[in-house]
């Protein structure tokens, strides 16, 4: 059985997930900031975002991104032609609309869960910390940036890791639904359709190979989180 398709698929999934994870962490942090803001309308926006994206199936989000957005006239995802990002994508030979749509879908969906993990972290920081920062005259953003977030991420990192692991696995859905061509999960399809005689064995092998591919990404992440947790328990 050829190994190359697995390697190719693995790399596509890895790239997809690294980009989506960065996007989801940034967007999730912003939404968490909205949700703890002293301004009620901003809080409402944050809450609405989480309510929507936490409560609709990922499948719907991916279909919407892949088939709904093009209908809105965004076939080539022109609105995503952000200078630096475009260069990175071209470099990765990933500058295809579907890859971008898959990133958008994973980012918007995962950001809701990232937000909740961050918010749990923020709530774990004693309210006296933010109060002391306010009493010094720090603005809301300074308070979050210099006092609350640096403490909150320590409480949030383990749940955040779980969210990212879930996202990694969710990315297979983007492959299965045609959101991305050639990701790790798509490898199954490639292999099976190209095989001729011994297809039964190949199917089994292909699925085992793909599973190993996902485990290579998720298990080290899980081990890393265990270590972080142990370290934190000792520091306490």
């Amino acid at each position: 059985m050829p190994i190359q398709p697995f390697v190719d698929g693995f790399l596509v999934t890895l790239q997809l997930c690294v980009l989506a994870a960065i996007g989801a962490l940034v967007l999730g942090a912003l939404i968490a900031a909205l949700r703890v803001s002293p301004i009620a309308p901003l809080r409402a926006v944050g809450t609405a975002y989480v309510t929507v994206f936490r409560n609709i199936p990922l499948t719907v989000v991916i279909f919407f991104a892949a088939f709904g957005l093009p209908e809105l006239g965004m076939t080539h995802a022109d609105f995503l032609k952000i200078p630096v990002l475009s260069e990175i994508l071209t470099q990765l030979k990933m500058d295809v609309p579907f890859f971008r749509f898959a990133v958008i879908a994973l980012v918007t969906y995962t950001a809701a869960f990232v937000c909740e993990a961050f918010r749990a972290g923020i709530n774990a920081v004693s309210p006296g910390q933010a109060e002391a920062a306010r009493s010094l005259g720090l603005t809301f953003t300074q308070n979050l940036r210099f006092v609350v977030f640096p403490q909150a991420w320590k409480y949030a990192i383990v749940p955040l890791g779980s969210v990212i692991i879930a996202m990694l696995k969710n990315s297979a859905l983007a492959g299965a639904l045609g959101g991305v061509s050639g990701d790790l999960f798509g490898t199954v399809d490639t292999l099976i359709s190209s095989s001729t005689v011994e297809s039964a064995a190949t199917t089994l092998e292909a699925f085992i190979g793909v599973s190993i591919g996902y485990l290579i990404m998720t298990v080290p992440l899980g081990l890393f989180l265990d270590r972080v947790e142990k370290k934190r328990a000792m520091a306490r």
Binding site: S126, G128, Q129, E131, A132, A133, V147, P150, Q151
Partner: peptide
């Protein structure tokens, strides 16, 4: 404050 509230980090 009663509980000091020094920034722990």
């Amino acid at each position: 404050f009663q509980s000091f509230n020094l920034f722990a980090h």
